[in-house]
């Protein structure tokens, strides 16, 4: 998508929000879920997703769990307590950003 740059900055928030809803998820599941939710409009590329997950993990916002599934090991991500708090903050920030953008793009003119 041409507008992927607009989404890029919000990737971390999207991941946090998904994990808040689903509890725990693995990498492939997250890419699929985002595709499904946005009906293909936003495709998280693999090259961007894993670095984002690893960064959030290193920051202590995500915790990992590993389980054996179909002959292989699967790594699940879930929010830590700090991650839960951060999700609330980042969602608030994102909403604020969306409001500001709306005002910029579509200003409500009024004559006083």
């Amino acid at each position: 998508m041409g507008n992927s740059k607009l989404y890029k900055g919000s990737l971390n928030t999207i991941i946090l929000k998904l994990l808040e809803e689903k509890g725990k998820m693995y990498g492939y599941e997250i890419t699929q879920k985002v595709k499904e939710l946005t009906k293909g409009e936003l495709k998280i590329t693999e090259g961007a997703l894993y670095p984002a997950l690893h960064k959030l993990e290193a920051e202590g916002l995500l915790d990992v769990e590993v389980a054996k599934v179909d002959n292989r090991l699967r790594k699940y991500y879930k929010l830590t307590e700090a991650g839960e708090k951060e999700t609330v903050n980042r969602l608030a920030e994102l909403e604020e950003f969306i409001r500001s953008m709306q005002n910029l793009v579509n200003p409500k003119w009024s004559i006083e």
Partner: peptide
Amino acid sequence: TELVDHLSN
């Protein structure tokens, strides 16, 4: 391990 699971899926 993480990439192997991703590719497998």
